[in-house]
Nucleic acid binder design. Sequence first.
DNA 1: AATGCGTTCAACCGCGCTCCG
DNA 2: ACGGAGCGCGGTTGAACGCAT
Length: 321
Amino acid sequence: MGRPPCCDKVGVKKGPWTPEEDIILVSYIQEHGPGNWRAVPTNTGLLRCSKSCRLRWTNYLRPGIKRGNFTEHEEKMIIHLQALLGNRWAAIASYLPQRTDNDIKNYWNTHLKKKLKKLQGSECHSRDGSSSSSQKISRGQWERRLQTDIHMAKQALSDALSPEKSSGLAELKPSNGYISYAKPGGYASSTENIAKLLKEWMRNPSKPVSANSAATQLSFDNMAGTDSASSEGTPSKEEKSSREMSEAFESLFVLESFDSSNSDFSQSMSPEASLFQDESKPDLNAQGQLSLLEKWLFDDGANQGKDYLSDITLDENANFF
DNA sequence: AATGCGTTCAACCGCGCTCCG
DNA sequence: ACGGAGCGCGGTTGAACGCAT
């Protein structure tokens, strides 16, 4: 008894979405909210399967999505999170709420993998032969690194908790994908935006692929009045709060790694665990490689927590909240 | 200008998980 | 307890694009 197809394979359109389809989908979701994807093609008349609709929404049309131009800080967070969580892109994305898992996955595969390889390669040259012995990093080292993270996270969190920053903290929970949706005035697939999208498309009707840019525009427009204003206007303030947010997210991921059960913790900590197993988890454990990567990863903002917090125990961290 | 090759990224596919009757 | 339906996730694909020759 096989799984039935999510939709009839015949008559289902595949490939890039057109602006018209985007408009239809956005309009529908604006009215009904995201969810019940199975009903979307039926109710909208879109010749797409429910999965395709969901994907299009979550990855491109959903408000609050930032595309391209990963900052160095974001890169570091991704690398850090990937080292700890492995290829759990959704989990990683939940700490970068403006990024989708697909986006992060693509960025990892196309940019960061190479970057790390390059960094590691340059270190390996001076240390080849020692790899087998340095393959294993001691648990103690990882604990220390995590303790550092926790300290940084604590600081970031206490910063974020200070009264003038509390507004940013409201968004500190990991995104479930729809974090922006409930924001008052935040969800803005407004008629103006749809009109704008349409207008954009009318300007380049010959380029169906521009659906993406148009949709992106829509997404950004949707963010107007929320956190998207940072792209222009008052960059310093916005960037700062965005950064604070990211740091707070870092704090959350560190805490979660302890919080989300010991098995999770031991999984990420034990040398034979998935963390160090395969190519999908970069081999960050070689001593020399770590040193170079550490330098880069800890480059920004790490100074505050560099002295290794000998007073913080894992138990203490587990009870942090 | 034409062609080949490498890169990027939107979208698809298949599997696993959860919920519900 | 079981099975079906719906959804989410990670891996993979392939079209579009840019650059080199």
